[in-house]
Design a protein around this nucleic acid. Sequence first.
DNA 1: TAGTGGTCTAGACCACTCC
DNA 2: GAGTGGTCTAGACCACTAT
Lengths: 253, 253
Amino acid sequence: MGTTQLETVPEPKYWHLRTVLSEALDSEFSVGEILPNERDLAARFGVARATLRQALEQLELEGRLQRRRGVGTTVAPPRMGVSVGTAQHAWPGGAQDAWQALDCALEVPPAGVAEALVTGSAEPVHVVRRSRVSHGQPVAAELLYIPGDSVPDLTGIDAPAGPARARAVLRELQRLELERQENAVELGSARADDARELDRLPGAPVLVVTTRFIARGRTAALSMATYRADTCRLTFGDAGGVEIHHGPTRHAS
Amino acid sequence: MGTTQLETVPEPKYWHLRTVLSEALDSEFSVGEILPNERDLAARFGVARATLRQALEQLELEGRLQRRRGVGTTVAPPRMGVSVGTAQHAWPGGAQDAWQALDCALEVPPAGVAEALVTGSAEPVHVVRRSRVSHGQPVAAELLYIPGDSVPDLTGIDAPAGPARARAVLRELQRLELERQENAVELGSARADDARELDRLPGAPVLVVTTRFIARGRTAALSMATYRADTCRLTFGDAGGVEIHHGPTRHAS
DNA sequence: TAGTGGTCTAGACCACTCC
DNA sequence: GAGTGGTCTAGACCACTAT
């Protein structure tokens, strides 16, 4: 006893690699710059490609890298701040709220959603699909579940089932008085359809924001928005907040 | 042309497996139940173990499974709601805010943090470590950065550098008038020390909540809290919110 | 000591993008 | 067609937990 052991716990290779690469990104690479391909990098570090990929996966999860099949691995810009609290203390579709309505259908919601809404579990509800673009790229896809009795005056309308109908539903929603809203954030993985819309592969990590809109003491609408976890930093309350970045990463000119 | 192609795009095996397993979890397993081991499962589905593991990773990311080395893979309970907005519209350390102070040191903060605080980049600040426990298990680890001039009357104090000193710093902080706070959430991976405290392996996915406490027009304190992404659903605003679960998962009695 | 999940290897082939 | 990242295999060994 008493012998000082350096390196008592041999760190996993991929974790050590992650650290080395992370420091290299800070000091030797610019945003947007393209890294050597995986086979070369693996050879250079003397590890199997799978191990190198484990390290890259970590860095991608942390928003440091962006990988695109057929193209290469590039240094990602700092995550963009995306506001999800304020200016949204209002119904969706009001003012311009950064979202774009895509379409609207009448569907039976998943069991969990039906439970949150008060509707019977087999009751179809309006499902509005919306998408959110920020700084020129898609950052979120949303499904908005709206029970029929939240938009009573719409029951007879037969808009062409595209964006027009979606906007009509949202317009009707404005007429209710919004009591408050509840937000929750959790980690998820992109379903196939969301992934396509977000320009990612299925299973990509996403931040799922669930918002209950409460009026007349009941849940008048429920939003499930999936944000790209690699590119987004969600900000609550006011203000976009401050960049808390990693180090002296430079920007390509 | 015109031929209807079913299954045009062959889904990756691991993704299909994820779906199959997910449905099995809903219908055939109870919370806490232990799954067959990875080698058996892989054989049963006729895939390599690595492929099976890719599917399990997805499900773990989604909070459906919990894997522990040397033990096995178990069905995870629904994520617990953890409040991070309200009752916190106050300084940390006030009332009982679910956090437990561990210790306090005087350190030079990382570059990004120093920038957010107004201090010169080489100025040491108080760093309070706190930990948060919910439902009997650790859910978050926090580093609270507090510039010296936010707690001016503390400069002379020499508390024993443990929890006592941490609490003394927080007590001093209460004397400032809190203007507002700004929250941001993003995905990260657990550093080695956080991982140990959260009972996870390094690199485990975490939700990083950054909070700026603003007083006298300046950032008087900055909190970086890392929550276990597998077990936590962060709730903002009031109320723990509603369970939006996957399906008819039963609970072990 | 037996059994579990975690790490790692060295290959192969596929899907995609760009020239 | 060349080059990239994505998927998949069949093995090996390690670290940890429980008994």
